[in-house]
Amino acid sequence: MDPDLVLLLNGIVSGLLLGGLYAAAATGLAVSFGMLDIVNIAHPALMVMGAFSVVLIGTALGLDPLLVAVLQAPLFYLLGILIYGVYHHFFEKRGEEALQGLAFFFGVMFIIEVGLVMAFGPEQRFLDPPYAFITWRIGEIDLPLRMLAPALLALAALGALHLYLKRSFTGLAVAAVAQDAEALRLMAVNPVRIKRLAFGLSVALASIAGGALVVVQPVDPSSGQIFIGRVFAICIMGGMASLPGCLTAALLFGVVENVTATFYGPSWSPAVAFGWLLLVLAFRPQGLFGRMA
């Protein structure tokens, strides 16, 4: 086969795997930003925090990083509940989300990033499970387990969230809370409780995405900065509150970014994220698939 074509095919496949990971990172945001209308710009920072805690716990106990990512998720759920509690009490309730609330999440993001630098230093961290060095081959296409396993975990988490939102009563209430908090009140459902729960879930999802991330590539405290562009671009492109839209956008994004990196060098990938974000905001703010946001 033409070597360029092989390169392209491999770029597409690993782009899809990368996209699966991005999907997990972005769906948490689709819940908080898309459904709850909470502009959690600390989302990528929480993800990096999840990655660091996976490295810490995984190394200490000798456990598989993906397993740790799942096991620690409840802790991050609690952290999310705590953050939402503060946000709701001081900003949402007073109607000061726009300026002060945004500054609050910026502060949280900043505290996490600098806190990680102080605790672990600015160096990159990684944790390689044994299978990280195995690569399956199908014809001329490489399927490195280093990318396949995290992508599968990410997709499983996504699927579970999707089922939860579609099938359970509370899940349906989450989807409704942004559109009609009053109707929920009439159904004797406390919208604040629903939002707290959903925000906790979004942070738990961020931590799982972080755990998956650390298998794919080394992570440093400032990794979150590059992910801000990625996850917001994907979330907006996917139509803000739609999980299938988010997944599609993430896969597409992963492919474009990875193919760009293959042919032009990886140092340009942040530019891809930002370029997409600007293009989406300028020309299709309602997303590729969604209705008007």
């Binding site: 502009v39 562009g229 907006i236 340009w268 942040p270 930002f274 974000l277």
Partner: peptide
């Protein structure tokens, strides 16, 4: 970005620094 809600402008500026640094 300013024809949209204000947060989109904020998000764009958040990414701007990363890209300029690149």
């Amino acid at each position: 970005t300013l024809r949209l809600r204000g947060v989109f402008f904020s998000i764009a500026t958040l990414c701007l620094a990363v890209v300029l640094q690149t």
